[in-house]
């Protein structure tokens, strides 16, 4: 088990290096020089000398390879993602501030998605082809089609017109007031959770239907076990493995969703940081967010793979 985890972590290194090389060079191709932008904003007379000074101060006068090696070396050796070109604060500081916010929103949304998807998926399977099954399946197809940014917009607009209610604007970090923080995240998390639950629900239903046809389920029924035991202990546990895989595959979609929710509900997470950094051409932040998000997705997928062992004792890690 330990050897397996270590090997999996080692495989991450080439993937991350590859990704870092690509994102580093792609981001440098953003049209419009950050120097031009800064100089026009700060009203520095755009003479050649001050331009060069600014470039040297930001380390942008070096060849790209040197810039890359410095940057990747900083990350690998000291966990240093460089400094923001605008605020001149360490990127790591910004990331450390924003990551927990996105994590909270994402985890909240995922919890809601699973709490909705699995019970409904199971219900849909054990009552296959009843009215309830049709209704839940149609709704899940509909949820796949409703864009979360539209749903978010509607939730902002209509309750405000009808009842004068609007989501709270001032952001409360989880550390300060956990309850209040969860309350403000509830609306975006529910929207995101419902969107995610559609696919998971369909998958749970399909897998349950397959498992319910197995011989050992018939045996369980024949023994006279009651429905709850057959469905939950014998069937669901075996149906969950592909569902867990799917959840792992959905993590990138979940992160994409948090970007949109953060934009609509003005939640200062990684997504908003990325969107702001892209519009300001703040390369170190863009690359930093990209790397952290990539690493997070890969680590979550490792956790997903490890969870198979918990769900299915037949799985052994070598």
């Amino acid at each position: 088990m330990q050897a397996y985890i270590i090997r999996r972590l080692l495989i991450l290194i080439p993937t991350l290096l590859f990704a870092s090389l690509i994102v580093f060079s792609v981001v440098r191709m953003i049209p419009g020089d950050v120097i031009d932008l800064m100089m026009s904003q700060n009203d520095i007379a755009a003479d050649k000398k001050s331009r060069e000074q600014l470039q040297a101060a930001l380390g942008l006068d070096q060849p790209m390879l040197v810039q890359y090696l410095r940057w990747i070396g900083g990350i690998a050796l000291q966990g240093d993602f460089g400094r923001s070109l605008w605020q001149n604060t360490p990127v790591t500081e910004q990331l450390a501030q924003r990551l927990p916010v996105t994590f909270e929103l994402g985890l909240f949304a995922l919890t809601i998605a699973l709490l909705v998807a699995i019970p409904i998926g199971v219900y849909s399977a054990i009552r296959q082809d009843t009215a309830g099954d049709y209704v839940t399946r149609s709704i899940s197809l509909l949820m796949l089609a409703v864009p979360s940014f539209w749903l978010g917009t509607m939730v902002m607009v209509f309750p405000s017109i009808w009842w004068g209610w609007s989501p709270q604007v001032k952001f409360v970090p989880f550390g300060e007031d956990p309850a209040q923080s969860l309350v403000q995240m509830a609306v975006p998390a529910v929207i995101l959770g419902f969107a995610l639950s559609a696919v998971t629900m369909r998958m749970t239903r399909t897998m349950m239907l397959e498992v319910l046809r197995q011989d050992y389920i018939r045996t369980a029924w024949a023994k006279g076990l009651d429905e709850k035991l057959v469905v939950l202990r014998h069937a669901l546990r075996n149906a969950l493995i592909p569902v867990v895989t799917l959840v792992g595959l959905q993590v990138p979609i979940l992160i994409g969703g948090t970007v949109i929710m953060e934009q609509i509900f003005v939640i200062p997470g990684m997504g908003l940081l990325l969107l702001d950094a892209v519009s300001q051409r703040d390369y170190p932040i863009v690359t930093g967010v990209f790397m952290v998000v990539g690493l997070a997705v890969m680590l979550i997928n490792l956790l997903v793979d490890l969870s198979y062992g918990v769900l299915d004792p037949k799985v052994r890690y070598r």
């Binding site: 590859f18 792609v26 191709m29 990138p252 992160i255 997705v297």
Partner: peptide, 18 residues
Amino acid sequence: DAWMSFPDLVILIVVVSV
């Protein structure tokens, strides 16, 4: 594999900004 492990929207935002 490497391509799909990054969130679509994040890649799209970065690429479109380029």
